[in-house]
Design a protein around this nucleic acid. Structure first.
Lengths: 153, 153
DNA sequence: CAGTAACAGTTAATCTGTTGAACTATTTTA
DNA sequence: TAAAATAGTTCAACAGATTAACTGTTACTG
């Protein structure tokens, strides 16, 4: 591919990504209850999907230090949305699970987010959206591979 | 479209967006010089693209309060990458421009980012990437429209 | 088996980004 | 000309992140 064309595509990609991240994030935020941040909701989502996990796993998935996770979990535990349970086999490990209150709040918010994103998706032809998701998935794989390569497995 | 299918697509979209945002952001961060954050670089990029702008414009584009912009600009000015210039016509207005040092640092970093993203783009067929960007652009328009509608315009 | 490595998680200090309210200074407008 | 609107700043408070030092627990090794 022509290098000037690539430059143009990269520029477009960067600007679009920026705009979608910022404005999409803002719209998601509007779906949040009053004392919940986007990041906190994503943490709840991950724990819910996995039906429990550890801080180290979250730190890995969220690409941050474990101490950052400790801070977020502290806040969510204080609000009563998350429970810490020490593993009796390996007492270093702490399992994180949603409380009933946490799970309920999560589902409510997640429903609103789904309705929002559905309203976007429905504006596309099924064909177009399928192709988009396919490429998006491939992009994700490429980024993950680049990360593994740069930061060493 | 079938509603179960839509739900699946929305789920995929949310998970992919999360992963790409987090991991892509991490890779971008690796391209940064030592005392520069991603957000700070995006501010420099916007000012560079527009060849100068105001705090209010940045607040609008970045979707944050003006006081958040003041804080970021303070840091960038302290580091000598940005200049504030009062408008002589309307003395309420402050124009923001890059200093020579700021512009140079910006170009260096931006080049590394372009090389990184190019290495992603080059792994796709031109066709595929073009279709992707088209849909991505449409998605951005939809999000901007939703924002205008929700937050009143 | 004792002693050291490695691991999971926490704490504390410090920084960046963000909000919201109150404020200053300067136009605009009615 | 007085009131309203606008551009930007200040301040207090909080969320998220990093780094380094630390606790407690488990695994490894000579």
């Amino acid at each position: 591919m022509d290098s000037a064309l690539i430059k143009e595509i990269v520029d477009k990609y960067l600007n679009l990504t920026f705009s979608i991240e910022r404005n999409g994030g803002q719209l998601i935020k509007c779906q949040m209850g009053n004392d919940m941040t986007n990041d906190q909701h994503y943490i709840l989502r991950y724990i819910n999907q996995k039906e429990g996990c550890t801080s180290s796993e979250l730190a890995d998935v969220f690409n941050v230090n474990k101490s950052a996770i400790t801070a977020i979990i502290d806040r969510l535990e204080k609000k009563g949305f998350i429970q810490r349970t020490r593993d009796e086999q390996d007492r270093r490990v702490v399992y994180l699970t949603l409380t009933d209150v946490g799970r309920e709040l999560f589902y409510e918010t997640e429903l609103r987010i789904h309705q929002l994103v559905s309203s976007f998706i429905e504006q596309f032809e099924p064909d177009e959206i399928e192709r988009f998701i396919q490429t998006y998935e491939k992009l994700n794989q490429i980024i993950l591979a680049a990360k593994d390569e740069m930061l060493g497995e």
